[in-house]
Design a protein around this nucleic acid. Sequence first.
DNA 1: CAGGATCCTGTATGATACTG
DNA 2: CAGTATCATACAGGATCCTG
Lengths: 118, 118
Amino acid sequence: MKKIYNNQVEVVLDLIGGKWKSEIIYHLGSGPIRTGELKRLVTGITQKMLIEKLKELEKDGLIIREAYNQVPPKVEYSLTNYGSSLKEILRVVCDWGDDYIKNTYPEGQVTILAHKHD
Amino acid sequence: MKKIYNNQVEVVLDLIGGKWKSEIIYHLGSGPIRTGELKRLVTGITQKMLIEKLKELEKDGLIIREAYNQVPPKVEYSLTNYGSSLKEILRVVCDWGDDYIKNTYPEGQVTILAHKHD
DNA sequence: CAGGATCCTGTATGATACTG
DNA sequence: CAGTATCATACAGGATCCTG
């Protein structure tokens, strides 16, 4: 199905928007991670959503899935060059968001589970 | 209702995510605009969605609504300082998206109604 | 002209149980 | 351990009509 966007920003939002993708990309920024560990790192995500988002990210060329032929199964995910290039963007957005939160919710009316960068 | 985010990026996604907000902010970047003209500029948006998104943006402190007491009614929307500071972010994201599109959809499988920046 | 009120629908997200 | 299959639900987005 052909997609129609109003602008390029919407394309990026399709890539990293939604509830989980930015967090997944963030964790993969430190290097390849196995499925199980990723599930532990991304607080609150279900198995289903994790696999679903990983598939989308892979299809969009942002991450790579590597399966090792062994029992028990071992699968590792890592960022592609494109995915890596997103890290800088996310860092800028993250900083902006951090500043926004500090100025807009001084009372701590929102909770951020993970920190700015690390 | 208290919101819980995994990271700061999700906060920003809440602010500018969804189908219309980035486009609205983009147009307001050129200066104050009346509701009707905004509706013309944002291709395909319905009255309802426009008003709804404008309210959200105002509540989040990104835009300002100014109503002039006259008949017929005149209402203008403009960016706050915070909204303006978003422009730089959006520009970076936009550039990244533009590059991504060129490299990933060389055949023009997607349509971008508005252009990069202008 | 600006905006509100209803009603409707697709899709993203989730809970849970299951398989090789 | 990694991934699937079902079923359920909440919410963003939309169509349409209405008002000062």
